[in-house]
């Protein structure tokens, strides 16, 4: 069953252009110069219940704009949005009860209150009756291991604990869909890992549909089964994670340290990425050659050290951004 369905969605902005210097400043007051930017240009996609979808793209690709339209903050210029059977432009409030949002580093918790009081506050925002709220908080704190510090003021918590509370706060009203805009931005690796576990758990325990944007490729690699890539306002790819990797499986990277130097240039299927004395970094196209041939060509006797790997996802994705 599809939870989010987007058809032919478009949105453009007028951006004020300012010329340089003093004259430019004066000019921009008298006669502002606007440039129209198509932030989102005719995109369509669907998300099914329980899916974890990564929505990625370079800066300014239209990620945030899309999330804002899905949550009812922005209205589209044209196209149709349906989230849980609700049109965000028509029933924003009704939708708000059903969805949760976490916008990057924007902290929504009151620092001086305990996590528990904070949760009570959010329960009030979502009109959850006192008793029910207490039960819900107990359940969540057990599930996400908050019990030890639930009665400590948030400002005294470690960043990791704080982030955990932040997420739990957005789950208080049992949202069916969770929108996460850059959930791990600015966090250290340990906390990042923590957040990823948390997101996985939310999805597993409550079958919450998760729609997340991120710059961090490892977020996506570890969390999502499906990736939608947006660039310049259009969707350039919408595929499963395994497919995405598979497409680029025909390339391998070999890093090798040799006893005596070999000339790899002009060998079929090999592209030299980097060469320094007896160390080489090579890209192998397995459609044109195969690894056995290559290894024979190098001669195992000659190898001091070797490392064969797939092309990192990060590079795959930036290749897609560059439309290669």
């Amino acid at each position: 069953m599809s939870v989010i369905s987007v058809k032919n969605l478009s949105k453009s902005f007028k951006v004020k252009q300012k010329e340089k210097g003093f004259i430019g400043s004066v000019k921009s007051i008298i006669q502002p110069n606007y440039k129209v930017i198509k932030a989102v240009n005719d995109i369509s996609f669907q998300v099914d219940e329980g899916e974890v979808v990564a929505f990625i793209g370079p800066n300014g690709a239209g990620k945030s704009t899309t999330i804002k339209m899905l949550t009812g903050i922005l209205y589209p210029d044209s196209g149709h949005i349906d989230v849980l059977g609700i049109d965000p432009t028509k029933a924003r409030k009704k939708l708000a009860y059903e969805i949760g949002t976490v916008f990057g580093q924007k902290e929504q918790l009151w620092m001086h209150l305990t996590a528990y009081d904070n949760f009570k506050f959010f329960s009030a925002i979502y009109d959850i009756p006192e008793k029910e709220a207490e039960k819900r908080i107990e359940e969540l704190s057990k599930l996400f291991d908050l019990e030890k510090f639930i009665n400590t003021p948030v400002r005294n918590l470690s960043l990791g604990q704080r982030v955990r509370c932040e997420f739990v706060a957005s789950l208080i009203h049992k949202p069916k869909v969770l929108f996460l805009d850059e959930p791990t931005i600015g966090l250290d690796p340990v906390v990042k890992e923590n957040v990823r576990k948390l997101i996985k758990k939310m999805n597993k325990e409550y079958h919450t549909t998760i729609f997340l944007t991120s710059h961090d490729i490892s977020d996506i690699e570890k969390l999502c089964k499906r990736v939608i890539i947006i660039n310049d306002g259009t969707i350039v790819m919408d595929d499963s994670m395994s497919n995405l990797k598979y497409h680029y499986m025909d390339k391998k990277i070999i890093e090798v340290k040799l006893k005596s130097k070999i000339n790899f240039n002009n060998v079929k299927g090999i592209k030299v990425l980097k060469e320094k004395e007896n160390n080489s970094r090579l890209e192998i196209n397995t459609n044109e050659t195969n690894l056995t041939t290559i290894l024979k060509f190098i001669n195992p006797e000659n190898i001091i050290d070797i490392n064969i790997s797939n092309i990192p996802l990060e590079e795959i994705i930036s290749a897609i951004y560059r439309k290669e």
Binding site: K11, F13, K14, V15, K16, I37, A39, G60, G62, S64, T65, K68, G72, I73, L74, Y75, D77, T89
Partner: peptide
């Protein structure tokens, strides 16, 4: 607010 939602003039840095 309708204007805020429909034009989003405010976002000068997307």
């Amino acid at each position: 607010l309708r204007r805020y939602s429909s034009t989003n003039l405010m976002i000068s840095k997307i």
